[in-house]
């Protein structure tokens, strides 16, 4: 007959994993990325599709939150108009650290086809971006891939967010670089 006895003094048959704090923290962070439900234009439809059952973001630990205070990823999905830019920045500021930004679609990356007076020509003018996701609109698979790349990026970073540099919103000629979070 089998012996059902737990020996608490030994390892109980469980493997012991040795790791660094950075890796442990980043493992936690990267596997529960909660994005903000923040759709701006047509790209948002693809973002919603990625969250829904067919593509199923939940299996990656990615659950959309309706409040910036509970979210740690901002997926800027769509055209950011100048009128709205102020609010986008405010939502970004309301998110608690650590936070990351995915710029989804040509419109968010560069203004896209809206080369007009009313569209922000790339959200990196106002918010530091971690992942640029090209496409118009990017397919849900692409957004999943972007999220996986973000997870990869987070795993590479330090657990201490102060040591990680954000993208600087400085002029691209690189003459003068002042950091602006």
């Amino acid at each position: 007959m089998a012996q059902h006895q737990v020996n608490y003094a030994s390892t109980a048959g469980l493997p012991i994993a040795l790791t660094s704090v950075d890796k442990l923290v980043n493992w936690g962070r990267s596997n529960s990325l909660w994005p903000l439900t923040y759709g701006l234009a047509c790209c948002a439809i693809e973002m919603m599709a990625s969250g829904a059952s067919r593509y199923d973001f939940d299996r990656m630990g990615t659950i959309f939150r309706a409040s910036p205070r509970q979210a740690d990823v901002m997926i800027l999905a769509g055209t950011l108009s100048k009128k709205h830019s102020e609010f986008a920045r405010r939502l970004y500021d309301q998110m608690t650290e650590p936070k990351w930004v995915i710029s989804m679609g040509s419109c968010a990356n560069t203004g896209g086809m809206f080369n007009t007076y009313a569209t922000v020509q790339g959200v990196d003018r106002i918010i530091p971006v971690d992942i640029y996701l090209p496409g118009c609109a990017p397919r849900p698979e692409t957004l999943q891939y972007a999220l996986m790349m973000l997870q990869k990026k987070i795993r590479r970073e330090s657990a201490d967010m102060k040591k990680n540099t954000k993208q600087d919103l400085t002029t691209q000629t690189g003459k003068k670089r002042t950091r602006l979070i």
């Binding site: 560069t110 203004g111 080369n115 790339g122 003018r125 400085t170 002029t171």
Partner: peptide, 13 residues
Amino acid sequence: EYRDIIGPENRDP
């Protein structure tokens, strides 16, 4: 005052 830092819009895709 941040105009210098952020720079003009890039209209050339």
